[in-house]
Design a protein around this nucleic acid. Structure first.
Length: 424
RNA sequence: GGAGGCGUCGCCUAGUCAGGUCUAUGGCGCCCGCCUGCUAAGCGGGUUUGGGGGUUGACCCCAUCGCGGGUUCAAAUCCCGCCGCCUCCGCCA
């Protein structure tokens, strides 16, 4: 949510943001008039209520002959108050509903464009030349089956398409990645958190996942709960309704949870293996900070992601995601795309968003400092999405014989082993 | 899932049965001042939170007794729904 005051003070800024997102600009004009009406009705309702309250205080003091007239007058006022309050409530609800339809304010120097416009900021590492090494790389599923690490067939048998089992070395690899991620995050000052995968509607709406992304979300209708697509949801809602002392900011959390995605709009896309699945596990970084710190914290999250990918020795690029592809909550987003040898291109493995005050306003999370109470900023960033990371490790570090070299940083978490080896 | 108890402005607490000087009591803690070789004690004053206006920190208005509705001129108090905590039973990992 944007600052409601901005509707009055700087509607043009909102218009520019809407245009950058490729979304409705007329909505801003509706908001401006709804705001004026809301303020007017609230003021008159409050004035009436004050008058009524004062009169009803006089009732017990009134003499017996004054009382009937006084009661009649207050009764009449009470009816007016009821009407005025209802009108004010309605105007307020209309304004709020309009406000919730707005995406976050896009930071002004975010590159303009849509999903297909890739703005590459950096390239790190060099893809291997498999031809020079004298063999054709196997894709992650082929490797996963050789290693006895991934079982898609039984995933489909048990749960349906886009489900899998990680078995043997595959399960060990995920646990090692988790331990490496948590060890690094702890060293960086993050508090490890294991968070619920099921959340209430407020948590989902507050993080912005019930807007345009609602199609991709699993819902348990019987219990009115949602399955999260990322632990960001639980980590953001963790402090919902709270006021945090500015001295305790920034707060860094790293959450671990399963993530569930319907992949509703992805029929036929990335159907092979575990690249695009309905469920995976993820270690996610999350930051609460003062709004003026948000861009610096965002840069820091990106550095942590780069550190992790570099430690896994995966060639990658950093992208500044275009304004039309941000998702409703982000004011800016950086993605890291890792090299996928069998597709001979870079594919997304991490994503970090600066949500500025968008989620904090919806979830009513504020900070208190010497200047008073105000909304804070939230940011999130993937530390390790297991399935994609496993794909990158298998494909990039594979050997001609189907074994996979384990990056040095990961070895301590795999009993010092240097290779994952094919099973008989 | 069943039965019962509880939820008041940092903590504890009065008030709820019998709606109105509750504009919420008292204690602890905390802040300021007085007294004082110093400290403590004592004495006096202040102290819910949030929103809005708005002075630049002397102010005014609104809301706030777990949350949301309802009844009423008037709700901490009565009615309904919900949430959370505790105890017991059942079930379960």
């Amino acid at each position: 949510m944007i600052d409601p005051k901005m509707v009055r003070t700087d509607p043009d800024r909102i218009r520019r943001s809407q245009a950058a997102r490729g979304e409705s600009v007329e909505l801003v004009d509706e908001l401006v008039s709804a705001d004026a009406r809301r303020r007017e009705l609230i003021a008159s309702s409050e004035a009436l209520r004050a008058e009524q309250k004062e009169l009803s205080r006089q009732v017990p003091k009134a003499s017996a002959d004054q009382r009937p007239a006084l009661l009649a007058r207050t009764r009449e006022l009470a009816a007016q108050v009821k009407d005025a309050a209802a009108a004010a409530e309605e105007a307020k609800a209309r304004f709020d509903a309009l406000l919730l339809r707005l995406g976050n304010l896009v930071i002004e120097d975010v590159p303009r464009g849509g999903e297909d416009d890739l703005f590459v900021l950096e390239t790190h590492g060099t893809p291997r030349d498999f031809a020079a090494e004298g063999f054709t790389p196997r894709d992650h599923l082929e490797l996963g089956e050789l290693l006895g690490a991934i079982d898609m067939e039984r995933g489909a048998k048990v749960s349906g398409s886009r489900f899998y089992f990680l078995t043997g070395q595959g399960a060990e690899l995920e646990l090692a990645l988790l331990n490496l991620a948590m060890a690094k995050a702890s060293a960086w000052g993050f508090t490890p958190m294991i968070v619920p995968s099921l959340v209430k509607p407020e948590a989902m709406a507050g993080t912005g996942f019930l807007g345009q992304a609602a199609e991709d979300v699993y819902r348990l209708e019987r219990d009115d709960l949602y399955l999260v697509g990322t632990s960001e949801v639980a980590l953001a809602a963790y402090h919902a309704g709270e006021i945090l002392d500015a001295a305790t900011l920034p707060r860094h959390y790293v959450g671990w949870s399963s993530c569930f995605r319907r992949e509703a709009g992805a029929h036929g896309k990335d159907t092979r293996g575990i690249f695009r699945v309905h469920w995976f596990d993820k270690a996610e970084m999350f930051v609460y900070c003062a709004p003026e710190e948000a861009e610096a914290e965002h840069a820091r999250l990106l550095e942590f992601e780069k550190d992790f990918i570099t430690a896994l020795e995966i060639p990658f690029q950093v992208l500044d995601v275009a304004s039309g592809d941000l998702g409703s909550s982000a004011a800016r987003k950086y993605d890291c795309y890792g090299w996928l040898p069998t597709q001979e291109r870079y594919r997304e493995i991490t994503s970090t968003s600066n949500c500025t005050e968008f989620q904090a306003r919806r979830l009513d999370i504020r900070l208190r400092d010497a200047d008073g109470v105000r909304p804070l900023a939230t940011l999130n960033g993937t530390l390790c999405a297991m399935t994609r990371t496993i794909i990158m490790i298998l494909e990039n570090h594979q050997q001609a014989d189907g074994s996979v070299r384990i990056p040095a940083a990961l070895r301590p978490f795999l009993g010092g082993r240097e290779f994952l080896t094919p099973v008989a």
